[in-house]
């Protein structure tokens, strides 16, 4: 069984974000990069499937060459090989999905796992687009996965409940946090991962028409929501404080 996992290198969201001088990107100097947390669950699920049914796990990513480190961490968890596609910086999710679909077509995986979204652009659509482009059945935000051989059964989260779905293979699934606990890589696997193959190719090699990839949307500005906690202690009688709080939460913060 061939299992592909789509992963993305993203900044750790615990980092301090600052807007760069162009006003529409973030300063990257002090950012720490990690594998997008939802993708870790995807890798874990893929490796669990491999351990159960045999086969190979290929980590696929689009990003700068530094993304190899992130692929490497997937290999350290137990994946077999990696594929990194570079030169896709200017793509929107739409173009990105086409690139991934083209690359995955040559790999012909039986199952594709991906995190439900990457916590950089939070686009939350690339895996579904890939599945559509490959004409694969797919399910998003799954919290349980079971392989029945020719088909898979998954629990898919909805607000306040879940669907249990059965999909024929090949299929694509996006993972939600509750599905598993990503394993802690062992030292021998970290060592082995250093020797595993990561194939690198550029978008150009996929032979996609540039107009098909052109981004149809663009970021005009980045703004930072409040960074520091307000630390505002409300004054007055108890009832006044409570009324003031509810007013603020409703009108100023809009969280009620």
């Amino acid at each position: 069984m061939k299992i592909a996992v789509l992963v993305k290198r993203v900044p750790d969201t615990a980092s301090v974000f600052k807007i760069a001088v162009d006003g529409k990107s973030v300063e990257t100097a002090n950012l720490k990069y990690v594998m997008s947390p939802y993708d870790e669950h995807a890798v874990e699920e893929a490796i669990k499937l491999k351990e159960k049914n045999g086969g190979e796990v290929i980590i696929v990513s689009v990003g700068p060459s530094e993304a190899k480190e992130i692929i490497r961490s997937g290999l350290a968890m137990g994946a077999d090989s990696g594929l990194l596609i570079t030169g896709a910086e200017a793509l929107s999710p739409r173009g990105l999905a086409k690139v991934l679909a083209a690359a995955l077509k040559t790999l012909a995986p039986d199952v594709i796992f991906a995190g439900k979204q990457a916590v950089d652009d939070d686009a939350a659509q690339v895996p579904e687009r890939v599945a559509e482009l490959l004409d694969m059945p797919h399910a998003s935000v799954i919290t349980r996965f079971e392989c029945l051989g020719a088909s898979v059964v998954v629990d898919r989260e909805i607000e306040g409940g879940q669907y249990t779905l059965e999909l024929p293979l090949p299929a694509l699934l996006t993972t939600q946090k509750g599905i598993n606990t990503p394993r802690y890589p062992t030292l021998p696997n970290i060592m082995k991962a250093k020797k595993k193959e990561i194939r690198e190719m550029s978008v150009g090699e996929l032979g996609l028409a540039s107009e098909a990839l052109a981004a149809g949307c663009t970021v005009e500005a980045f703004t930072l929501p409040r960074q520091e906690r307000l630390r505002k202690v409300l004054e007055g009688e108890s009832i006044q404080k409570v009324q003031e709080l509810v007013r603020i939460l409703r009108e100023t913060e809009k969280v009620l």
Binding site: Y184, P185, T186, P188
Partner: peptide, 22 residues
């Protein structure tokens, strides 16, 4: 347990992952 099996308390894994990144 940790180096060969990655087997230790999940809460502690969180702490060590945090140490790794930040």
């Amino acid at each position: 347990r940790v180096l060969m099996e990655g087997d230790f308390a999940e809460e502690a894994q969180t702490a060590l992952r945090n140490v790794e990144t930040q």
